[in-house]
Design a protein around this nucleic acid. Structure first.
Length: 314
DNA sequence: GTTCCATTAACGCTACGTTT
DNA sequence: AAACGTAGCGTTAATGGAAC
């Protein structure tokens, strides 16, 4: 059985990252492609038998305007962690003819119902939310190129993401990436990057690895995931936000903090919530807000240690 | 207590600046 | 001149602070 991740561009012009794990969580493929044919060609060898393909792109979009209910529900939990989902609706040109991810899933004959028992399935995931939950971050890693963010700051954040991905090997649902040459090449590219576009080229495949891991995690630890929304109006699958995890500070203070990241490369600043902030009530709230949560306890204990490790990276 | 403003995230597109 | 790289804008909803 294979677990694929696709960091899918909404349109065909921008690059798409593809990563595949085997049943043991070993990375067997990682790379970037562009058009639909190339995405399908990359996935085809791994989707003939039992498989899960996790798309970081809208899979079901029916609303003519505004946000999907899944985005509203997810943003309610994750916005404070700066992991808000981008709104998708059929009024946008990218979705006028149906979501690209649904076309690809259809071409591969994958079942898109998040609660299906089918052997070959596609799900929608969201890497930013996944990294917050898996790594117990108090806010997302700022590795996405945006105006005002410097190359060195972006690089250090992307390397923190790669560190976190590699550290997942030590968890009860291990991910093993360091044995793959293309992963090591990606790391070298990031370390050597001098321009934002150098980082952007590496970012899509790395995000795809996170997507693939969410697919694996959802299969191995179904009690540890939350499904926001539903199959009819659109859904997003993510590792459950730990109940005791809190954002680091109010929005106003975070703005100042962002400046520090952009200009000072504050790698390793205390952005992981203390582990003693456990046991709160958000679980109940989420249940009222359109999220199907299977486990109120969050990721396993060893991920706490991972959180510490990320929080103390220097 | 209510309203308004600024800010945040996501991604794609376009315009402009820089490099070859 | 062409190619490439980057900044800025638009979209959408939520939120905190300030002003009324």
């Amino acid at each position: 059985m294979y677990f694929a991740g696709v960091d899918l561009a909404w349109g065909p012009r921008n690059p798409t990252g593809v990563a595949v794990l085997d049943g043991d969580g070993v990375l067997v493929h990682v790379g970037a492609v562009r058009d639909d044919a190339a995405v399908l060609a990359a996935l085809q060898p791994f989707t003939t038998g039992s498989c899960r393909v996790a798309f970081d792109a809208p899979l079901v979009v029916t609303n003519p305007s505004g946000q999907r209910p899944a985005e509203t529900a997810l943003n309610r939990d994750f916005r404070a962690f700066e992991a808000g989902a981008h709104p998708a609706n059929t009024g946008k040109p990218e979705f006028a003819d149906g979501p690209r991810a649904a076309r690809l899933a259809g071409a591969l004959d994958l079942n898109m119902d998040p609660f299906s028992a089918a052997a070959r399935r596609a799900i929608e995931v969201y890497p930013h939310a996944a990294t917050v939950a898996l790594f117990r971050l108090s806010r997302t890693l700022k590795y996405k190129a945006k105006p005002g963010r410097g190359v060195e700051g972006l690089k250090s954040e992307l390397l923190r993401l790669m560190d976190g991905i590699e550290a997942l090997e030590q968890t009860p649902t291990p991910l093993r990436v360091t044995g793959h040459g293309d992963w090591l090449t990606l790391r070298r590219q990031v370390q050597a990057a001098g321009r934002k576009c150098d980082l952007r080229r590496a970012e899509d495949p790395i995000d795809a690895v996170v997507c693939a891991y969410v697919a694996l995690y959802a299969e191995r630890r179904p009690s540890g995931i939350t499904v926001y929304g539903d199959f009819a109006t659109g859904y997003i699958v993510t590792p459950t936000l730990p109940a005791a995890l809190h954002p680091d500070r109010p929005l106003v203070d975070r703005r100042k903090h962002l400046d520090e990241i952009d200009h000072g490369c504050q790698r390793g600043a205390a952005r992981v919530a203390p582990l003693d902030q456990r046991g709160d009530h958000r679980t109940v709230d989420r249940a009222d807000q359109g999220a199907h949560q299977f486990d109120a306890h969050g990721p396993a204990g060893s991920l706490d240690r991972l959180g510490n490790r990320l929080g103390t990276l220097a």
